[in-house]
Design a protein around this nucleic acid. Sequence first.
DNA 1: GTGAAAGCGCTAACAC
DNA 2: GTGTTAGCGCTTTCAC
Lengths: 403, 403
Amino acid sequence: MSSPFPRAVPTVSCAAHPREVLRITSIASYVAWAHPARPTTDRGDRPEGARQVPPTTRPTSRDVAREAGVSQATVSLVLGGKWRGRVSPATADAVRETALRLGYRPNLAARSLRLGRTRTALLVVPALTNEYFARVHTGAARVAAAHDFGVVLYPSPEGVGPARDPFGSARAALDGVIASSMAADALAAISGETAAAPRTAGGPGGLPLVMLDSDPAQSGAAATVNLDLASGMRQVTGHLAALGHRRIAHIASAVDSWTFRVRRAAFDAATRDLPGAVVTRRTAALSVEGGLRATHDALTAPGARPTALVCDDDVLAAGACKAARRLGLRVPLDVSVTGFDDLALATAVEPELTTVRLPADEAGARGMAALLAVIDGLSPQQADLPVELMIRGSTGPCPVEPR
Amino acid sequence: MSSPFPRAVPTVSCAAHPREVLRITSIASYVAWAHPARPTTDRGDRPEGARQVPPTTRPTSRDVAREAGVSQATVSLVLGGKWRGRVSPATADAVRETALRLGYRPNLAARSLRLGRTRTALLVVPALTNEYFARVHTGAARVAAAHDFGVVLYPSPEGVGPARDPFGSARAALDGVIASSMAADALAAISGETAAAPRTAGGPGGLPLVMLDSDPAQSGAAATVNLDLASGMRQVTGHLAALGHRRIAHIASAVDSWTFRVRRAAFDAATRDLPGAVVTRRTAALSVEGGLRATHDALTAPGARPTALVCDDDVLAAGACKAARRLGLRVPLDVSVTGFDDLALATAVEPELTTVRLPADEAGARGMAALLAVIDGLSPQQADLPVELMIRGSTGPCPVEPR
DNA sequence: GTGAAAGCGCTAACAC
DNA sequence: GTGTTAGCGCTTTCAC
């Protein structure tokens, strides 16, 4: 997606043009910031003489100013790129040169404090250990970077265990929040607080919030970026129906979040219209093991065995394939399996999974774009992102004489 | 790993005991921070009247002080947990109550500016789209949180494309850096800058740096946390040798980073001592597809076909299995395959991969602990983390009459 | 036991 | 064109 926003001008102008150099310079700059500080825990004050501030500090804009023979304000203007008609080019160059030579880097804390905003967004994800959200982050970070924004991840409690304090994880001050579903607790809290002024940025107590993959009606967010999951599920069932499958089991995620409720409802709606459809459902923990167990149950339950397994997720589908094979069933000859998400896993297993590709990267990018729009006081575009059925080897024609 | 550090006392005391409430309160607090600020891009100044600071701001410690009828300093002391003998318990309670009622949250930018440190560490990872590093982050974040530190991820350029400016990604000011290998550029820059004062925190230009999975001799870091990869590779080759395999192909990662050089050297060393061993090697892009191609080449090369494939990585191993099967070879009957890392993928595929479990979470935790130690002026313990061979279904006895 | 005051490094309005 | 100045919100001496 090409961003609808104008490109931000780099805050600290970088004489070095090749991005290699820029990158290195910038990272290396971090090195120039160190105070051997001890945690401010109440572990009793040090008895031995209190070591004071270290002798070496990194240069401030004042140092640059002194060194360059200008005022500190001039340094700020030049490095901030706002010197257009106010500082002579020669002076500006001198300042930049000095800043570079001293290895000056603006103090972000000071800047944030002064500006009252941080150009930082929080991305709340259920757990980092998931390729899907990694891709969401990638997309969000890409758009953010293009606008000189940063993204800080907050893996919501389930991810790292109940985080004692989000300040520990999301340490930065924030300009906005992007939250995906599946972070129920946190989301409830956020929307609850935002309810007073849901649609505006800067309302009383209203930090701009964009929700991903969540109920637009309930989120209380300024914007919602959703995927057309219903279409995906319809494509899946349509595909299976076209292959002749009628006995279909839904291996559903046990996680109670909007995204899975939508998948379930879409599955139900799609199969309801399928003449002769015999539908069952098992819920499973969101893991290979969970999918395996639920599928085992679905395939060994009394009654006619399903010929197709619609899984809420690729991971579940991988488990489903294992379960089928352990029962001596061939995929897709005896039973077809579909996934959802199109993770790398989908093409790592054999047969490769027929699955629904979710544009995770794009969702993250849209989410960030929406957040930036909200922060800007604009109304972000709202449209479900299209998903695409990837037909691969795990689905095939319904066996003629099943069982 | 149980942390060697004392537990930090929460900065803002939380009357609410149940962690549910704490969590919600904390996250919700973010909502109370909003300035409808426009990006400071040079897109021309607004012609229409310059909207000033929004009317609503979140409460400051001064507001709390006024409301509670105390001085702002008292608020700071109480909420900072340093009121032990200086403020009366009654006053302290009143302050806390007021802070809670107003929804007060300390401004992190101001705190950082004042303290000169941020209690934030940067975790540089090659790309987020990788379960291994997600686990590293999890471990690091866990230890960090226990010490009231935050972790900000910086997916190094390969991950999100060449980030224009790390300040865009890692927006927070930092107290230290944890970097994994495979982030060559960034690392070179960091170690280059740190070389002047490698072993101390707070040396001139020396931001504490801990390297993960990197050459201890070259990193220039204050500490290195490594895995005993050589042992892992020895276990793999030993396992295969015990099964009778002698013709072994190494499907090596094409990524030129220390971790893979170690694996390669260990493989070479281990097979060198194996009488009658016939060893080949193919390098592969770090993907299922890459593994598939390299393995296809290895299995179809002229000469006696290898009976075992040692892959640098589970993803490569997944590709190797696919390649073998496409050639009509059964795993493990005709060819054995081993992976490395023990990602979830290893047990998602069939047969499940015999692989080396890397304690990623533990590595992240150790890295963070080491960083905290360095920041504290202590010398972190240095020891390679043990790895473990997970024997599963992808390896079996060498076929008696191979080919 | 509590308040007053200094100042972290930066930006931006305003003088000159 | 350039310099001076006033804080952003917080922590931390130091008086009282």
